[in-house]
Amino acid sequence: MHAPQDGPDRRLHADPGLQPERTTLAWNRTMLALVVAGLLLLRWVPRHGWAPLLLTLLTLVTALVIAAGQARRYRRSARGIEDGRIEADAVGVLGTTAAVAVLGALALVVVVALPVG
């Protein structure tokens, strides 16, 4: 096993292809999908007014919340490799699932229920 490096490039475990990196990539894809979905909502602004702007803002805030937890999740996973035990981030997954479900429902309300402007 390699000794940890000092500085900003210090790795918390010896194998850079292990679970923490794959999990980080998955969360990054989730953030990207939220940002793209939020930006796609902007096409409804001319038809539905301010409501799509609010939804876009909510998707961007959700992506920022995910980004804010990235370093913590990575460190916890890397330490779990060293300790031989990794616990799932159930709160993060359930929170993201709930946020996406609420955003989807709100988008449907905007498109279907709000009057066309």
Rank of each mutant, 00 (worst) to 15 (best):
A68R: 15
R47N: 07
A107R: 12
D89G: 04
G69V: 01
M31L: 07
A113R: 09
P52H: 06
V45G: 07
H13M: 08
V93M: 09
A113E: 13
G38E: 10
D83Y: 01
G104N: 06
L34W: 02
V100S: 08
T30F: 10
P4M: 10
D15F: 10
I81D: 02
E87Y: 07
A63L: 06
A26F: 07
V100Y: 06
Y74H: 15
T96I: 00
G7V: 06
L103P: 06
S77G: 14
A3T: 10
T62P: 03
G7F: 05
A3C: 05
P52Y: 07
L40C: 14
G92A: 04
A63K: 05
V102M: 10
G84Q: 11
P46I: 00
R79Y: 09
G69D: 08
A107M: 13
V65D: 13
E87R: 14
G95V: 01
D89Q: 05
T23N: 12
D15S: 06
L103N: 04
T59K: 03
E82N: 11
M31Y: 03
D15G: 03
G17N: 15
H2R: 15
L12T: 01
L18N: 14
L58C: 13
V65T: 13
A98H: 02
L39R: 02
V91P: 00
P4E: 14
T23I: 12
W44I: 00
A107H: 11
L58V: 04
A14T: 08
A90G: 01
A14Y: 08
A105C: 11
A90L: 10
T23Q: 06
D15L: 05
A63Y: 12
A63Q: 03
A37I: 05
L41V: 00
D6I: 11
L55R: 00
N28M: 06
A78K: 02
R22A: 11
L42W: 05
V45Y: 07
L64P: 00
R72A: 15
D83G: 02
L60Q: 14
W27Y: 13
R22C: 03
G17S: 11
V61I: 15
L42R: 13
R47I: 04
R47E: 15
L60G: 15
L106K: 03
T56M: 14
W44N: 02
A78E: 08
L108F: 04
L41C: 12
I66D: 12
L39N: 15
L39I: 06
P46F: 10
G38S: 09
E82D: 12
V110E: 13
G80E: 09
Q70W: 02
R43V: 15
D6C: 02
E21P: 00
W50G: 03
A33N: 07
L54I: 10
L53H: 01
V112P: 01
V61R: 00
L55D: 04
N28F: 01
L53Y: 01
G7L: 07
D9H: 14
Q5F: 03
T96C: 11
W27V: 10
H48Q: 15
V110K: 00
V61P: 00
P52F: 07
R11E: 11
Q5C: 04
V91I: 08
E87H: 10
P4F: 05
L60T: 12
L58P: 03
V110F: 02
L41P: 00
T96D: 06
R85G: 01
L40N: 11
R11S: 09
L108E: 04
